[in-house]
């Protein structure tokens, strides 16, 4: 609904005079189930939470996989992490063709991330409409943390990072020394560049902040709430965020500090 001045979009408003009656609407025809569920803000939050869980699992798995950097070379003289890359490409082969499982996961992740973004966008629009005129004096927030209030920004920056990260280490577009399949070498090459390393560190810290609020928040959104485990939700969130940040930030630091060996140019 547009307000009388035509300048801002608003949610429904109540300021009309005269008697109020018959306000409870009979349950009308509903949209198909999933769309119906997704049409409310609470439904969108379920989507945020569920896609969030999937991405947390991915990020944790991704980080653990990358720890193979520290394993150096296997007995056959090939870097362990390169084997790991090979393993992912051949996952479930011959049940699925090569790259099959990988692409299923990739498509799943892409859908997940798109849903996460779409729901976040939808919620942002709702929230803008819910307060079209901002407070004209500074707010004094009591509880809302930097993490919770910066979700949109950390989210957007992390998204940008992911795209760059794909271009860097999946497709090699922004990594002049990129060599397909040589995971260790590529990581080492890209992280040896100072600006890239700093970008990785900053982006992962922001990711950690995003995860800190997101991990706690998803319990609320899904309604997983129980006095017995409620205090642990904050600890879990802090734990996930810390593990991810420490794990991921360790790579550029290790590379720059020479903790992991530089492979020879093949």
């Amino acid at each position: 609904m547009r307000d009388p001045t035509g300048s801002v979009w608003r949610m429904a408003q109540t300021l009309s005079r005269g008697p109020v009656t018959g306000t409870a609407k009979p349950a009308g025809k509903r949209k198909p189930f999933l769309l119906d569920l997704y049409s409310t803000a609470v439904g969108k939050k379920y989507v945020m939470a569920i896609t969030g869980i999937l991405m947390i699992l991915f990020v944790v798995g991704h980080m653990i996989g990358n720890l193979k950097m520290y394993q150096g070379v296997d007995a056959d003289g090939v870097y362990a992490i390169d084997h790991y890359g090979e393993f992912l490409r051949e996952l479930l082969y011959p049940l699925l063709p090569k790259y099959g499982a990988l692409w299923i996961m990739r498509v799943g992740l892409i859908v997940t991330i798109l849903l996460h973004i779409h729901a976040a966008y939808g919620l942002t629009v709702i929230n803008r409409k819910a307060r079209p005129v901002k407070y004209q004096s500074p707010r004094d927030y009591q509880i809302a943390s930097f993490a919770s209030r910066s979700m949109r920004w950390t989210g957007v920056i992390v998204l940008a990072f992911i795209l760059w990260h794909l271009a860097d280490l999946t497709f090699g577009w922004v990594n002049p020394d990129f060599e397909y399949g040589e995971v260790y070498r590529n990581i080492d090459a890209t992280l040896s560049r100072w600006p890239v390393a700093i970008f990785y560190i900053v982006a992962n810290v922001l990711l950690g902040i995003h995860l800190f609020h997101g991990t706690w928040s998803l319990f609320q959104s899904m309604g997983w709430n129980n006095p017995r485990f409620n205090p642990w939700r904050r600890w879990l969130a802090a734990g996930v965020a810390t593990v991810i940040v420490v794990g991921n930030v360790s790579f550029p630091i290790a590379v720059l500090a020479g903790i992991v060996e530089h492979p020879g140019v093949s």
Partner: peptide, 13 residues
Amino acid sequence: ARQVGLGNVKLWN
């Protein structure tokens, strides 16, 4: 409020 919702009470605030 239930009766307002159902249309049986007209409420003037």
